[in-house]
Design a protein around this nucleic acid. Sequence first.
DNA 1: TTGCATTTCAAACAGACGTATGAAACTATG
DNA 2: CATAGTTTCATACGTCTGTTTGAAATGCAA
Lengths: 223, 223
Amino acid sequence: MATDHTRSAILTAAERLYADRGFADVTLRDIVAAADVNLAAVNYHFGSKDELIAELFVTRSLATNRERLNELKAAEEAGGGRAEIDVVLRALVGPTLRGCLGPDKQRSDAARFMIRASIESVPPIRKIKNREVDHLRKFAAAMKRALPGRDEVDLYWGLHFALAMAHQTIRDTERLTKLSDGKCDLNDVNAIIDRVVAVATLALTTNPGRSKTGPRVNVLAAR
Amino acid sequence: MATDHTRSAILTAAERLYADRGFADVTLRDIVAAADVNLAAVNYHFGSKDELIAELFVTRSLATNRERLNELKAAEEAGGGRAEIDVVLRALVGPTLRGCLGPDKQRSDAARFMIRASIESVPPIRKIKNREVDHLRKFAAAMKRALPGRDEVDLYWGLHFALAMAHQTIRDTERLTKLSDGKCDLNDVNAIIDRVVAVATLALTTNPGRSKTGPRVNVLAAR
DNA sequence: TTGCATTTCAAACAGACGTATGAAACTATG
DNA sequence: CATAGTTTCATACGTCTGTTTGAAATGCAA
């Protein structure tokens, strides 16, 4: 029992390597080298490579979802069963963005691993991933409570876009940094969360249809 | 000369397979089986697997960029050297979205291949991909012409978010369909383009400031 | 200690991968 | 037709993959 040191060393090393280099490029031999354990240990403790990946994904997936729901539940209880739409969205994208872009290295590995998992769909993960939809449904419901008059389809698109902006920001920090010559600050996580939430909120609270020909706002006053 | 049938059969089959299943899961033997050519043909015509991938990517990358720039140039010439922001954004996300979600199967393979390439970064592509930033800079410039008063950083974030929404919509149609119980229509490509462009335009043309739903969000210029 | 179960280890396994080879089948020019 | 050049083909090569094996090491109860 004292010696599941091996087990957790494998998990930690695997998560970091997968987060850094993706599933395709990382072999079991890479993992055991990083964890400084024997090659056969993976199959002994996890059964197979796929089961190792699945265990990582399940653990992290549950943790992320729990974190999101805690934030949502706290907000809705504070608001008497209903939270403002921007607060709901913040609970949705905040945990992942903080996890990926924040300073904590261990959390960063975990969150970036989840992003990888959501992109490069490997067989062991694909099966489990369908549960995510059930999780997101709870946020769709909270959004419906926040904006009862809004067309349901708009809500789904808003949720979809919010996640899209958050994930792409994590996935492709490099391009944005290069494109903006470093002017877009990707270290200020809270500012990024504010930005994503703001755009998604805007999309969900503005009346569609009159966008193109509407009066253009003078932005000069805005710093 | 008449017999680069083999060559193009390989290209077509490879593009379709990579688009469908990603780079990691597709072997040369899968490709030659689908193309109904001999295994050695790939190395004979392309030199190596990596060079095959690179050729696919370069070809498609140039085509996509050309299509985008044509649309942008036409719009700016019609407007006397300046296009409205939503038109610029439409030129940015339209070609890819039409390509991926539209009915044309060949184009769909091409566009979905490009999405894969932008996600699962394999070595042969990674090197070439840096040029994309130069391409996007032209759109950043057009956006600057469309919204001369807007803070530069906001423009970059707007461009980033527009691409994020477009790509995620292509990448994860399945989740949105499931989540919305089929209520979000992913066959109406023009409606999707309108939606993406509308949200991005909104984000770029709305005055930053207090959200109507609470004091907490200091919107676009979140810093 | 002895005995038994758990865990580690070096080594080997079978299979799949990208690539190389050399002969056979073509095409085209004279 | 003959011949030179190109393209196809079956086959084999070396390497890397995940997994298995059986023995050695370790932990722990009696």
